[in-house]
């Protein structure tokens, strides 16, 4: 139906978005790739030399990389487990007939809108501080030793904070999905004498599988790049105990000025994220056809 004129116009209207995104993605990425093959330190400008894959070799064999790689896995895996487990529970609970559901929803959703630096500092100081934090007061009340969370369990503490931020997203998305469940199916299961547990495993969980996949993939994209929460709480320490790959590359690039090494790390982070992205794109692509 579209006329040639409107087709030309349509191309023209796409142009700015495409050019900008192309420029934003391709140009810097090519620069990162180029830098990753150079011996390039910002403190010694003018001494750049081509060194092949040496930056990659150093980065991948650095014990700090191994440690931050596993920290990244633990961080992503831990937060996913907590938010999806808790999210399913909350979604089922909020789907029940309850009084004041809208207020409950508002309260559950709130942490998602709190900026990362605020939630990290509030948790670190007002809750997890071993002297003045609320958890320390609670421990004193029950007569037990207060725990110095960030000294002894730095990564776990960050997992708790990030989970608190992402639980609302998982819960809301899963609640939206659960509300589209066919009620007659559940009633039929009731008539057949199915208990709540078998109803959950044979009807609710399969119905949610698509939404759960979406939560896993979307959260993973964001969780791989956790940065602010680490910067304002532990700065990656003690040692590298709470450094993830994003934070490691940040310290290497902008604190040690090692452009070559940081770039090699950046390319590796892109490759890791791509593996996740491919699965997410498949899921969304399927939806686009339906």
């Amino acid at each position: 139906m579209a006329t040639i004129q409107s087709r030309t116009l349509a191309r023209f209207m796409l142009f700015p978005s495409v050019v900008l995104l192309l420029g934003w993605m391709i140009v810097p990425l090519c620069m990162t790739l180029y830098f990753s093959f150079l011996d390039y330190n910002l403190l010694m400008p003018g001494n750049e030399a081509f060194i092949g894959f040496l930056n990659y070799e150093f980065f991948l064999t650095d014990p700090a990389f191994i440690e931050s790689f596993f920290n990244t896995l633990l961080l992503v895996g831990g937060v996913l487990t907590i938010t999806i487990g808790g999210g399913i529970g909350l979604a089922i609970l909020l789907d029940q007939a309850i009084w004041g559901r809208n207020y409950v929803r508002i309260m559950v959703l709130a942490p998602f809108f709190v900026m990362p630096t605020v939630s990290a500092l509030v948790w670190k100081n007002m809750f997890m501080n071993p002297v003045n934090g609320l958890f320390a007061h609670l421990a004193a009340f029950f007569g037990t030793e207060p725990i110095d969370f960030f000294a002894h369990y730095p990564l776990l503490s960050i997992i708790v904070i990030v989970s608190w931020q992402w639980l609302p997203f998982a819960a809301l998305l899963l609640l939206t999905a659960i509300q589209s469940l066919d009620r007659e199916q559940l009633e039929a299961a009731d008539l057949d004498g199915a208990g709540p547990i078998s109803k959950f495993f044979y009807i609710v969980l399969p119905h949610l599988s698509r939404a759960i996949t979406a939560v896993i993939l979307i959260e993973t994209i964001f969780l791989l790049s956790i940065f602010a929460e680490i910067l304002v709480t532990t700065s990656g320490g003690p040692g590298y105990a709470s450094t993830n790959i994003t934070y490691l590359i940040y310290t290497q690039s902008l604190l040690q000025f090692d452009v070559g090494g940081g770039s090699a790390g950046g390319i590796i982070a892109v490759i890791i994220a791509n593996i996740v992205a491919i699965f997410l794109m498949r899921l969304i692509g399927k939806n686009l056809e339906g």
Partner: peptide, 18 residues
């Protein structure tokens, strides 16, 4: 559309230095 979406999945550290 899928390509545009894929740019969102680029980790920021991949383009941090440039």
């Amino acid at each position: 559309l899928m390509w545009m979406l894929s740019t969102k999945m680029l980790p920021p550290v991949g383009v941090l230095i440039p």
